[in-house]
C-alpha cells in the first residue's frame, strides 16, 4: 500500500510546503506574528468562497483577500488606539465568520463544497497538476525570502533601527505579508486553514534550541517540518488517522522531544 502513487504525491506536497513554512515560520515566531498567520488562514476561507462565487482560481481569491486583510491591518494599526492583538482578533474572526457564511450560502445554492477539506486539509487528494503549482509557488516565495532575508531580519530585530539604516520597511513588510498569503493559499490543501499556523510555528519553535544563528534556525525548522510530514503521513497510513492533523501532531511531539535538549 505504501507504494500507492497518491501517497507519494501527498508526501511531496507536504515537503514542498514545509520547505517554505520553515523560514517564514521563524520570522513569524521572531516577530510575534502567529496571530497574523491565523488571520491570514481564516481569510483564506473567505478568499476561497469568493473565488468559487466568481469562478476564479481559489489561489487568486486567497491572495486578494489576504492582501486586503494585510492592508486593513496596516491601516488600523496606524491609528494606534487599538492594539494589534485586538485588531487581528477582529479581522481574523470577521474573516472566518464571513467565510463560513459565504460557504453556506454557496452550498444552499447547490454548489458542492467539502467544508471539512478546507478546514482540515485534504492532502491525500492532491493531483500532479496541483504539485506543479505548489512547486512554482514555493520556488517564488523562497526566492523572495532569500533576497529579502537581511532586511526581514533587520526589521525583526528593531524596526526603527532598520528604517534608519535605509531598509524599505513598509515595502518589505508588505511583500512578506503577500508571501504569507501565498503560502497559506497553497498550504490550505495540506493541513487546512485551522492548522496552518501550527505548521509555521511549531517547527520553528522546535528548531530554536538547536540553532545558534537565524539562518540555522530557518534550515532546522525545515528539517523538523520534513520529519513531521513523514511521521504524520506514516501515522495516517498506519492507523488511518486524518493526514493534516497527524502531521501537526507529529510536529508537536517533535517539539516536546526538542525540549529534552538542555539549554546551552
Amino acid at each position: 500500500m505504501i507504494m500507492d502513487e497518491f501517497i507519494w504525491r501527498a508526501l511531496l506536497a507536504g515537503m514542498l510546503v514545509v520547505i517554505v513554512s520553515g523560514p517564514l515560520g521563524c520570522v513569524v515566531v521572531w516577530r510575534r506574528m502567529s496571530y497574523f498567520g491565523d488571520a491570514l488562514a481564516h481569510a483564506a476561507l473567505l478568499g476561497t468562497a469568493m473565488a468559487l462565487m466568481f469562478d476564479m482560481k481559489p489561489l487568486i481569491g486567497v491572495i486578494i483577500i489576504g492582501g486586503l486583510i494585510s492592508y486593513l491591518l496596516m491601516s488600523l494599526q496606524r491609528k494606534k488606539d487599538l492594539s494589534s492583538d485586538a485588531i487581528l482578533g477582529i479581522l481574523s474572526h470577521g474573516a472566518l465568520a464571513s467565510g463560513l457564511v459565504m460557504m453556506a450560502v454557496m452550498q444552499s445554492q447547490g454548489e458542492r463544497i467539502d467544508l471539512m477539506a478546507y478546514l482540515f486539509g485534504d492532502i491525500l487528494s492532491v493531483s500532479w497538476q496541483y504539485i506543479i503549482w505548489l512547486a512554482i509557488a514555493c520556488v517564488v516565495v523562497l526566492a523572495f525570502v532569500v533576497r529579502l532575508w537581511e532586511s526581514i531580519l533587520s526589521i525583526a530585530v528593531h524596526e526603527e533601527l532598520a528604517r534608519s539604516e535605509g531598509v524599505a520597511v513598509d515595502r518589505v513588510r508588505l511583500v512578506f505579508m503577500l508571501l504569507m498569503a501565498v503560502l497559506v493559499a497553497v498550504a490550505m490543501k495540506i493541513v487546512g486553514i485551522i492548522l496552518i499556523t501550527a505548521l509555521l510555528i511549531i517547527p520553528a519553535a522546535s528548531a530554536r534550541r538547536f540553532a545558534s544563528s537565524p539562518e540555522r534556525m530557518a534550515v532546522l525548522a525545515v528539517v523538523f517540518g520534513l520529519f513531521s510530514v513523514v511521521m504524520g503521513m506514516f501515522a495516517s497510513m498506519q492507523w488511518d488517522t486524518p493526514a493534516g492533523p497527524s502531521i501537526v501532531l507529529s510536529a508537536v511531539l517533535l517539539f516536546f522531544a526538542s525540549r529534552l535538549k538542555p539549554v546551552i
Binding site: W30, V157, H158, A205, S212, S213, M217
Partner: peptide
C-alpha cells in the same frame, strides 16, 4: 532595546 530570546543571534 530588547532582542527576544527566540531569535538566535
Amino acid at each position: 532595546f530588547h532582542i527576544d530570546a527566540v531569535l538566535p543571534m
